[in-house]
C-alpha cells in the first residue's frame, strides 16, 4: 500500500505502491498516512509515481490528509502520471497541493520551508 522512506530534515516520503488509488484502497491508504501524522511526522511527500489512476474517493483521501496536517506541517505531492495530473488540474488541486516532478525535488523544497 505505502512504502515509507525517512529523508533528511525530518521529511517522510510515502510512496503509494498501488496502480489505482480508488475507493477500494483509499480508506486504508488514508489511515496509514494519518498514523504517520499522529506519530509526529507532519512533513510529508506523497509519491504517486506508481499510481496510474486516481478516482474521486482517492482524491478525497488526499485532501483529507492535507486538512489533517493543516498548519502543523507540510504536504507535497510528486510523480503525478498523466491521468492523475489531469484529475488535479480539473479539480484545481494543482493549486492547493505543492506539486513536484520527483521525490528528490519535493524533499528539497520541504527541507527549505
Amino acid at each position: 500500500m505505502i512504502r515509507v522512506n525517512h529523508r533528511s530534515g525530518g521529511v517522510l516520503v510515502l510512496a503509494v505502491t498501488e496502480t489505482r488509488l480508488t475507493a477500494a484502497v483509499a480508506p486504508q491508504f488514508k489511515q496509514l498516512v494519518l498514523d504517520q501524522i499522529e506519530a509526529g511526522n507532519t512533513r510529508l511527500v506523497l509519491d504517486l509515481s506508481e499510481v496510474g489512476f486516481i478516482d474521486s474517493t482517492g482524491l478525497g483521501a488526499m485532501v483529507g490528509i492535507l486538512k489533517r496536517v493543516g498548519s502543523r506541517g507540510d504536504v507535497a505531492v510528486c510523480g503525478l502520471q498523466p491521468a492523475a495530473a489531469q484529475m488535479f488540474r480539473l479539480t484545481r488541486m494543482d493549486k492547493v497541493f505543492r506539486i513536484y516532478d520527483d521525490a528528490d525535488a519535493a524533499v528539497g523544497a520541504l527541507e527549505q520551508s
Binding site: 478525497g60 485532501v63 480539473l90 479539480t91 484545481r92
Partner: peptide, 28 residues
Amino acid sequence: AGYPSPLLLRPGDEARIVGTGGVPVAML
C-alpha cells in the same frame, strides 16, 4: 466545479473541450 469538461460540437467541426476545471463543491 471539478465536473469533467463538457464537449462542444459545432456543425462541420470537431468536438472541443469546454472549461478548464474548478474546485469541487464541499471539498475545501
